[in-house]
Design a binder for these strands. Sequence first.
DNA 1: CCCTTACTTTGCGCTGGCGCAAAGAACATC
DNA 2: GATGTTCTTTGCGCCAGCGCAAAGTAAGGG
Lengths: 233, 233
Amino acid sequence: MNKDRYLETVRKSSLFRTLRGESFAVLMENGVLRSVEEEAFFFMQGEPATHVYVLCEGRARMVQYTPNGLQITLRLVTPGQTFGGVALLQPSSGYPVTAQAMQDCLAIGWEARFLQMLAEKEPSIALNTMQLMHHYIVELQERQQALSAARVEQRIARTLLKLAAQAGRKTEAGILIDFPLTRQEIAEMCGTTLYTVSRTLNEWERKGLLDIGREKVILLQPHGLVEIAEGFE
Amino acid sequence: MNKDRYLETVRKSSLFRTLRGESFAVLMENGVLRSVEEEAFFFMQGEPATHVYVLCEGRARMVQYTPNGLQITLRLVTPGQTFGGVALLQPSSGYPVTAQAMQDCLAIGWEARFLQMLAEKEPSIALNTMQLMHHYIVELQERQQALSAARVEQRIARTLLKLAAQAGRKTEAGILIDFPLTRQEIAEMCGTTLYTVSRTLNEWERKGLLDIGREKVILLQPHGLVEIAEGFE
DNA sequence: CCCTTACTTTGCGCTGGCGCAAAGAACATC
DNA sequence: GATGTTCTTTGCGCCAGCGCAAAGTAAGGG
């Protein structure tokens, strides 16, 4: 398995897209390919934050475990996206979340110390990091708003729309969320239970908004979902 | 009203605490004192993000308005804290939240362009910004976890504890949350309603955990609240 | 092709929390 | 101290969503 297969993935990643020539070569040189199989972890909440990763293959999720043992999925990571970015900032403090592979995953990782060195020569890395953080903050704020103000129905609709935007593939029928996804997993993303998700999705299928199956969701009428998500219902 | 009264506040602020000598003088020179009275706004969600502020006097809150007209208080700002920091990052994009004075406020503001210039000479500003964002992200993640996993009771307890940590003053009786705070405002911080807050606080007063009054909360047994917050109940 | 395993659906009862309405309490103003 | 305003409390009815339990369905392995 050769990490150079993923040159393009790294070059386009939001963290490193500004690197050129020499710097980029040094970057690739120092990256370490890491493969993590389904259900396994890149790192766990609380572990010392040593590495930053760019995902190359598969699908990972950033998850938090609550005191009562519930899981909250904070975000999904798709190929080309960065995770573990905190390592750059506060290597001392542990990772604030757990990174778990939802499918077999391949990622390239760099040591925080190396990236800090590189960032001194290439200030754009710091800038990119800030932009990433900024995006993430806005996203978290949106979700916080959703969680405290919106009903479950709306939250599920938003989650599906976000998933479709992030990992949707157009088919003749509609937008397929392009990876296996259980009701349980959807529930963990929007703070509800698998029962409620199941009931809601079935209701929407009856209305013709969706086509659902085992670990499969196809959006037939995205616009209808948007209306639900916004609360115009 | 002279902004130099607040030299120390700015010098200790998390955004500028690393500035010394000349740079600090230039900073103070370029800051503009702005006073905003209770209930009024420093800026509104969506407005172009032009200024970054350090709060000097009073108490402000960062709030989001939902489509249905509900308000979500994302965080409180106390003297010495920075707000509007997004302006540094994406001046083009609007403020993602509204900054409203909860009491009469005084703050010093700087133009984003000026700070960007300054940051080129003083890279520590960029670093400090990242640290601030990092803190904020961790806080948002905690709150997201709370909102999606914890019951209202737990969320209220956490909110009180956070408030006490941020603005608590020890008195002979217990920890007083040192500014007027309505049930409504508490509700907006933890995603519930003023009715539920009222009922819950009264119950806790009966149990001897709190001493409450009009716009007043004193924690008598913080440890008891911690237990509730953690769900050991 | 059968058997196991993992995922999904659905009925059912229950309750936490919402939110109206109305009364009560603290404060401000004159 | 009278009046209006703002904040708080509480009774009451209601329902969204939870979560158990049990049956149904698809996938995978040998």
